[in-house]
Design a protein around this nucleic acid. Structure first.
Lengths: 193, 193
DNA sequence: TTCATTTATTGAACTAGTTCAATGTTTTGG
DNA sequence: CCAAAACATTGAACTAGTTCAATAAATGAA
């Protein structure tokens, strides 16, 4: 069941006892989002932090030219939010859309603040989670500075094969930072080897 | 004095009372690093988290081709470490070098863990700091996906004018993800307008 | 099942950025 | 203060990636 997935995820990063774990999980509410629907749209204040239990999301932003740039994809067992918008309750920079029929567990701002006070370990939990996210983004940043589009594509499909197969060329290209036509050319070049 | 700078920096992100603030600051030790010297080299286990009180550092990594890629520059009032190496006490991916004669306040791993236990607010402090770092890296990631090198250069010198003037073309180019020759061409193009 | 819409592929012309090499300029250490 | 080294500039030839347009293939709603 989906709460079990959340419990398991939490225990990777902090030690909560059974009672704390229960209190933590009780603060979350399930929500279903149909394919193509939005969980958050740019400019709106982000009212949740979410844990994906089914499906897949893309987290992206629109630039001044109306082009979409994907920050990350989130599938089962990933967290999604616009941290800046959520923690500071200010308009979001990011949009979050379901790529297929999906389910999430959501916590709101007041309840999360309450958890921080109630269970000291929760502070640590989110510190550690945020650190891990930062480390992987640092790695991705450097990969983007140092690698060619071919390499980044190959790394992505190797690292996230199950996500890769859910994505259109357009979506993946906008994560890799290239045009979808060029991604198509990379694919046919690789296929012909 | 440099401890005052640290206190001021901390109070931006958490509420510690005077006694806690003193305990916190007492865990740090000053260190001077001469220009071009290393505070951390790739492969080594990072034994510190540092707060810059004077000078400037570059935090970079070497790729397989021996090319350097700058993750960030840190000047007065910035924090430096390889989080992954420091928190998990494993070999570092990053190298940290002084760009000029510099001074830092350092805390070691055991003392930081001790602070987390002694002062609950410290957990929050580092959670908030890490979140802010993550948000700005997310923005930079998207800027790198969506903007041209000219734009990124102009944004950098606008956002960090005092850092920009300390850097060589090589150093700045490796942060922007372009060759130093191309940066030189961007500069002369802009100057001629 | 069909028609409309979205997505993928491919080629041709283009542009942003690289690489290499030559030359000039600045910085540094002894 | 000088020599050596590091850094910056510029041009020419190149390559990675874009843009536009045409066509094909897949998907979705009625």
């Amino acid at each position: 069941m989906s709460i079990e997935l959340l419990k398991h995820n939490i225990l990777k990063n902090a030690q909560l006892d059974n009672k704390e774990l229960q209190t933590f999980c009780d603060a979350f509410h399930p929500k279903s989002i149909a394919k193509k629907q939005y969980l958050l749209t740019q400019g709106e204040i982000c009212k949740f932090e979410g844990f994906v239990t089914k499906g897949c999301f893309r987290v992206f932003t629109l630039d001044e030219d109306g082009k979409e740039h994907v920050l990350y994809f989130a599938t089962k067992d990933w967290w999604i939010t616009d941290i800046d918008s959520f923690t500071n309750q200010k308009p979001s920079f990011l949009t979050i859309q379901a790529l297929e029929d999906s389910e999430v567990l959501l916590i709101n701002h007041a309840d999360k603040e309450h958890l921080y006070e109630q269970i000291p370990q929760v502070e640590k939990l989110f510190r550690v989670m945020t650190q891990k996210t930062l480390v992987s983004l640092q790695r991705r940043m450097i990969a983007n500075l140092s690698q060619t589009a071919d390499d980044r594509y190959l790394n992505f499909i190797e690292k996230y094969p199950e996500i890769a197969q859910k994505l259109t060329n357009l979506q993946l290209a906008s994560y890799l930072g290239i045009s979808h036509e060029f991604l198509s050319k990379i694919r046919s070049k690789i296929a012909s080897k």
